[in-house]
Design a protein around this nucleic acid. Structure first.
Lengths: 332, 332
DNA sequence: TTGAAAGCGCTAACAC
DNA sequence: GTGTTAGCGCTTTCAA
């Protein structure tokens, strides 16, 4: 059997309260006794049970991360930011993939509640009313990360998708492009919609005829959509709603014997690790993904400590990274 | 306050034992009472505390995953396989990144022990004696995943790195290549060493002069090393120890105005998602990463259920995926 | 089929 | 400075 606090207490000839005190670094323990206890702990290889502790203190020092799919190259860096920040603050991390399925989201939220997590970081693109309602009724610290449905009553860390898209398109316009296409993401993903709107507005304000092709946020989708876009619109520039889409589009552009950026200039969004490995290297809107994760945990910590009342949203800065695929002068 | 089992019991006018029974689907509860209790649970929005439950049952239904870095594109798919399998079996998942730091590995193992996880999946490249010793003394279900230090007394799921490398090199030899270089991974990573040995043996058995360049498992390393390899060895083919290395090497090859596979044919290893997005598409040794994760959890489950005594290693099948970068006839 | 009560391993008053 | 004791919310005998 694993030793318990009682085993330690008996062997060290003290009460378990004292053992508990040394465990929690309570200063009012005589050094001599502290050392004796420590020694016994060592001898026995004793490890306090976090579970018993949690039950007694009603806190778990665990935070939960719920995200769509760790396999999507956009998320690992966020996850890493969250994990690093969490561990730094002494929290362990639960993780669950939902594939954006509201059913699963709710199920995992429930599970986390049952596990008594101290807080939840939720990355969801599709938050429905029901989930929101469930979340609010939880009375639990929650931070929405990156893909907010606007107007929801939660802390959130986001980027300004609208502006990011607007800037990318404006760059193309500044370069003299007239036929700028947009590969959009799924309609139920808020950030995709915002980027689309940004694109549309930028085009309109320059009196240019927009062309949008809607797909999923995947490489394959980028390939397939791009074929039709070329056939129907003959763009000289492309703004893709995320890098995977852009990379897929580039593949198709090359397949047709067209050049990048010569025939078609391309800008993506997210700056996933691979965007600098493509040929030509993908120009893209860079998002401080790691920092988003760190910030999310900070907001969570604030809530957990009760430092702050009321909600708080943090908007992270994005930046157009001028690599090879968008043509034009080097902006650096 | 969150309702407890007592609140439910009182409101349903039964004892908490009965509530506990319906919670655990104990069949010997009268339907009428079961329904009444269920109704109250619903009304109160009651959720049993996993923590209290764990303390009472001494099981946590949580498994821990310790891996080097979720940000490395090789790991997310494994992680996903593990998570899916875990959730399927009713386990939640802890996750920790170690960056292959033995200190951190030990720290996280300790944390997981304190959290009373039911089992641990450990992906480590560098397992030192001390950690192994700690692990064995834990008496806890453990599965080593993918990067085994051979001869350690744990369950493991692996691939045959030696053979994989041997096959890749043999393919090149079969194509008539004489100057086949190898970009190796770090010396302290077992799989990298095994791949290197496979390369070396294949070269020797064909009486070819080998050329190995050792670096890290990164894209940048691939770029940098490849420069020297070209200068010093003028290879016509390259076997890289992983895809990131291969992709970096391809970048450098292109930068020098050389063609792939024309001037230098390349084969990578791992089949990370990006290997099919590169241009040309990277030929590589494909590893059933997702299945590795699933299998690891199955082994863990076996241990946790006590189904099996003794150790077990599972070797997963790899396969050379012939895409564009390795030249030669299409093998399909 | 149900209830009473002991206990899981720890923390936190409170008393000494 | 240290010990006693009463919980934390659940499961699980054991009786009834």
């Amino acid at each position: 059997m694993k030793p318990t606090i009682i085993d330690v207490a008996e062997r060290a000839k003290v009460s378990k309260a004292t053992v508990s005190r040394v465990l929690n670094n309570n200063p009012q323990v005589k050094d001599e006794i502290r050392e004796r206890v420590l020694r016994v702990i060592e001898e026995l290889g004793y490890r306090p049970s976090a579970i018993a502790r949690n039950l007694a203190t009603n806190r778990s020092n665990v935070i939960g991360l719920i995200l769509p799919d760790i396999t999507n190259p956009y998320f690992p860096v966020i996850a890493r930011g969250i994990e690093d920040a969490a561990h730094q603050l002494g929290y362990a991390l639960f993780i669950s993939n939902t594939d954006n399925d509201p059913k699963l989201e709710q199920e995992y939220i429930q599970k986390m509640v049952e596990q008594q997590v101290s807080g939840i970081v939720l990355i969801s693109s599709t938050l429905d009313e029901e989930t929101v309602h469930e979340l609010t009724s939880l009375q639990m610290p929650i931070v929405l990360c990156d893909r907010l449905i606007v107007g929801k009553p939660f802390d959130a860390v986001l980027i300004d998708d609208y502006k990011a898209a607007y800037e990318a398109v404006s760059y193309f316009i500044g370069q003299g492009h007239q036929r700028i296409a947009h590969l959009a993401g799924p309609r139920n993903i808020q950030s995709a919609e915002n980027r689309k709107t940004g694109y549309l507005d930028a085009m309109r304000s320059a009196n240019l005829e927009p062309f949008v092709s809607v797909g999923t946020f995947s490489y394959e989708s980028g390939m397939h959509q791009m074929g039709a876009v070329i056939d129907e619109y003959r763009p000289t520039a492309l703004f893709a709603s995320n890098d995977l889409l852009a990379l897929g589009a580039m593949q198709e552009i090359h397949r047709r014997g067209l050049t990048i950026p010569g025939d078609i200039a391309v800008i993506g969004c997210d700056d996933i690790p691979f965007s600098k490995m493509s040929r030509p290297m993908l120009s893209t809107i860079s998002i401080p993904v790691y920092q988003i994760g760190v910030t999310a945990v900070q907001l969570l910590e604030d809530q957990m400590k009760g430092v702050r009342v009321g909600m708080k949203s943090v908007i992270m800065e994005h930046k157009l990274i001028h690599r090879e695929s968008c043509g034009g002068v080097d902006l650096l």
